[in-house]
Amino acid sequence: MAGKQADLVVLSDEDRRFLEAQVRRHKAPRSLSDRCRMVLLCAHGLQSKDVAERLGVHEHTVGKWRRRFVQDGIEGLTDEYRAGRPRTVSDAQVAQVIERTLNTTPKDATHWSIRSMAAQCGLSHTTIRRIWGAFGLQPHRSETFKLSTDPLFVDKVQDIVGLYMSPPNRAIVLCVDEKSQIQALDREQPVLAMAPGVAERRTHTYVRNGTTSLFAALDVATDAVIGKCYKRHRASEFLDFLKRIDSEMPKGPDVHLVMDNYATHKTPRIKTWLARRPHWHVHFTPTSASWINQVEWWFAELTRKQLQRGVHRSTAELEADITAFIAAHNENPKPYRWVKSADQILAAVKRFCQKTMMLTSVPGD
């Protein structure tokens, strides 16, 4: 009895060019190039069994793609759509997870974890992870914020940002502040040095060896820093620091001081001293807006590079390291670049306030 007649493969010039191009392409999917190879060999008159032996595949595989090409042409060589496994989590369950995440807390914690939410909802922890990832929910994270309530916030931002982005001609702009109560800390046991594959190790317990306060003035144009450490940070120490700044400033140019509203900056003695120097101009930052004072960035750099992992057995050692850090910084200062205009900052604050009001508003109020 004769077997079933194999489908005859006839190629147009366009089909042949496409199939040969896919076989030659280095980046073509392997499955597609193999199917194209089968069709080309079948078009030469070879039987499916012979093609299978030559390519090292099963005869039924060759027969399948031969039939698919004869029926649908080039498009028949692509994989058919597969519906996949039916959904096991309904929209109502997803909505329940989101609602609980946003509006409730577990009995024994301040926020949900993936596994506590999974136990509560009767779903797997991988399902909870996918739902939270899809909707951008991160209960484990918490950020802080502080909005200034200064009634002159807008005016002060425009004034100080204007100084940064377009300072007066031949004027010197200094950002002044103090970093108070810097602790001289020593570890209770010696620090173990870093080794290949082993991080530096230190005890979590420490010994306090006194404190010092650093007054610093950052030149916005050059990034050079004038700094001095004091045992205390009263108005008398601040006045002494202002005198030090005055002694290091060139004569002639106006000096603009950007500083916060700390009480020691506004005592009668300070006001009298500044009044005797009409070329000195004070610009107070808005309350609760230390981010606008550029010297705070330098304080963060000092903390990260020198203080955070430093070991100091006395305040003298601490002050010596701070002084050395200032000297090293001034050897190659790199000015910070202020890029946000006052309008951009105020617009960002407005957007934050509007978003916060939307998140905290209660329906029906």
Rank of each mutant, 00 (worst) to 15 (best):
Ile226Pro: 00
Gly252Met: 11
Pro253Leu: 11
Asp254Thr: 12
Tyr230His: 09
Val225Gly: 03
Asp246Leu: 10
Cys229Arg: 01
Phe241Ser: 06
His233Tyr: 07
Phe241Thr: 06
Phe241Ala: 09
Arg244Lys: 14
Lys231Glu: 14
Pro250Leu: 09
Asp223Lys: 01
Pro253Ser: 11
Arg232Gln: 10
Asp223Tyr: 01
Ala221Asn: 07
Ala235Pro: 03
Ser236Asp: 13
Thr222Pro: 06
Gly252His: 11
Ile245Lys: 09
Met249Cys: 13
Met249Thr: 12
Phe238Lys: 04
Tyr230Met: 07
Phe241Gln: 08
Met259Gly: 02
Pro250Cys: 11
Lys231Arg: 12
Glu248Pro: 00
Ile245Asn: 06
Ser236Asn: 09
Lys251Tyr: 10
Leu257Ser: 12
Phe241Val: 13
Pro250Asn: 11
Arg244Ser: 08
Glu237Cys: 02
Val255Met: 08
Glu248Thr: 09
Lys231Tyr: 00
Arg234Trp: 02
Met249Tyr: 07
Met249Asp: 05
Leu257Val: 09
Val258Ser: 06
Arg232Tyr: 05
Lys228Tyr: 06
Tyr230Cys: 02
Ser236Arg: 11
Ser236Glu: 15
Val225Ile: 09
His256Thr: 14
Met249Trp: 09
Asp254Asn: 10
Arg232Ser: 05
Met259Asn: 03
Phe238Leu: 07
His256Arg: 13
Ile245Leu: 08
